[in-house]
Computed example of a mutant assay.
Amino acid sequence: MEATRAKQIYESKQTIGVQLDGEKQVWIESVDEANGMATVQVGSDPLNTHTVSVDRLKEET
């Protein structure tokens, strides 16, 4: 995924499914477009957050 798309998903009022490494459901919490990074929450645990490259994120179809 590109950083611009990750930011669009983050700012969207719709719920858009995103997966980390094609397996874990995540919620985008913030996007750093300049560095191509995103902070995501894994599953439903608000304490389980990771900062990852947006390349690892995939929009569910």
Rank of each mutant, 00 (worst) to 15 (best):
Q19V: 07
E29W: 01
I16N: 04
A6R: 06
A38Y: 02
E33G: 04
E59C: 03
A38G: 03
D32P: 09
V18H: 09
V26D: 10
E60I: 14
D55P: 09
V42S: 13
E2T: 09
G36Y: 03
G22H: 05
E23P: 00
S30D: 13
E29Q: 14
T4Y: 15
Q19A: 02
H50E: 14
Q41I: 08
N48W: 12
L47H: 07
G17M: 09
T51L: 04
I9V: 04
N35M: 03
Q41H: 06
T4H: 12
Q14F: 06
V26F: 10
T61F: 13
N48R: 14
S30P: 09
T15A: 04
E2V: 05
G22S: 10
G22A: 03
D45N: 04
K13I: 12
T15Y: 00
I28H: 10
M37C: 02
D32H: 07
T15H: 11
S30Q: 11
T4P: 03
G17I: 07
N35V: 05
I16R: 06
K24L: 12
R5C: 00
N48D: 13
W27I: 08
V26W: 08
G22T: 13
Q25Y: 11
Q41T: 07
S30A: 13
H50Q: 15
K24F: 15
A6I: 13
E11H: 14
Q25A: 08
S44P: 03
I28C: 09
V40N: 01
L47V: 04
Q41W: 02
E23A: 08
A34D: 15
G17W: 08
G17N: 09
A34K: 12
I16C: 10
V18L: 13
D45K: 09
E29R: 14
A34R: 10
S12L: 12
S44N: 12
S44W: 13
N35L: 05
A34W: 12
V26E: 01
Q41M: 15
E2P: 02
D21H: 03
N48I: 08
G43W: 03
K7Q: 12
D55W: 14
W27G: 11
S12T: 06
D45P: 05
Q8I: 01
S12N: 06
Q19W: 08
S53R: 04
R56F: 00
K13S: 10
V42P: 04
T39I: 00
Q25K: 11
T61V: 09
T61L: 04
A34M: 06
N48E: 14
A6H: 06
I16D: 01
A6S: 07
V31W: 05
R5K: 09
I16E: 15
Q19E: 13
N35W: 01
L20E: 05
G36S: 00
N35G: 07
Y10F: 15
T61Y: 07
V52K: 02
G36V: 06
G17D: 05
V31D: 03
G36E: 02
G36P: 02
S30H: 08
H50A: 12
V54I: 01
D55M: 11
W27L: 14
E2I: 13
N35Q: 12
D45V: 11
T15D: 00
V40M: 03
E60D: 05
Q25P: 04
D55H: 08
V42W: 03
K13W: 10
T49K: 10
I16Y: 02
M1W: 02
E59I: 09
S44M: 14
N48C: 10
V52Y: 02
I28A: 04
A38R: 01
